[in-house]
Amino acid sequence: MAERARTLAMGQDEATGAGRAGVDAPFGHALVEAAKSRPEIVGLTADLGKYTDILPYRDAHPDRFFNVGMAEQNLVAVAAGLARTGKIPFATTYGVFATRRAYDYIAIAVAHSRINVKIVAGLPGLTTGYGGTHQAIEDLALMRMVPDLVVIDPCDATDIRQATLAIAEHDGPVYMRLLRGKVPVVLDPKAYAFRIGKAAEIRTGGDVGIISTGLMTERAIDAAEALEKRGISAGVLHVPTIKPFDADAVAAFAAKVDRVVTAENHVVVGGLASLVAETLFEKGLVKPLTRIGIPDRYIECGSVPHLQAKYGLATERMVETIAKAA
């Protein structure tokens, strides 16, 4: 019997980019950088400082860092209170806990009053092998329904650094997914600029338009290259901001292609695929749509590459899915 891969320990790097250079803890270092011009920044976590890359900030500003223990409702409430006194709180935990446990606090204590709290949420989608308790597979859907909340799913180290700096300057509530540890560099920091609410066309193509968010943009770029070798021309539109959604860019991109493919590290209901379908219908632009993402079910434990391949998020699986549809 062949040796099987195993679930790794918490915090071990699982989902680094294929052959790409990586940057350590881009979020924590970007937060330290942001605090140089924004001394109002404070850091909070709910016993997951180590696993959400916020320790560089804690080490730089120990007096402005608060660990509230395993209490996510209080994490968000305390952050809201700090923001009411003029601070810019960055509160970290895992996406599952932020969204499922603290939803009422995000909605009422933060978003209802447009309070300046940034929630930074680790382990998005299938980036952990710890099963349904730790995999935030439906957080984008939950968060995009909250009025006035900005929702961001960054692709790589470039996106995380730029988005961290951008949300520190944005006066209002934000939910940002986090990639932690050694995070690959996919987007060229010299050519790419993250802007809240803006999509970025990474690659043009005529047969298929892949609209992707989060780490799936890396796979979309790789898949598009593989598809080209098979005679299929695929474009890639990276949509790091889920809310506010760049509907105009999505419609313009979709208008140029025969088939639209959405790719998200999230269940295929309620997230990017739903947003794209809503947007295109509203604009009277009807195209065949292929939804790549996590199926509408909870996922078991396992090694991350195994789970991503099994559930269609790996690049090779994307290529197959798109080639079959195109």
Partner: peptide, 13 residues
Amino acid sequence: GQGVGQALGLRLD
């Protein structure tokens, strides 16, 4: 909890 956050913020100031 929001009172805790405000008390922390006021103390920082």
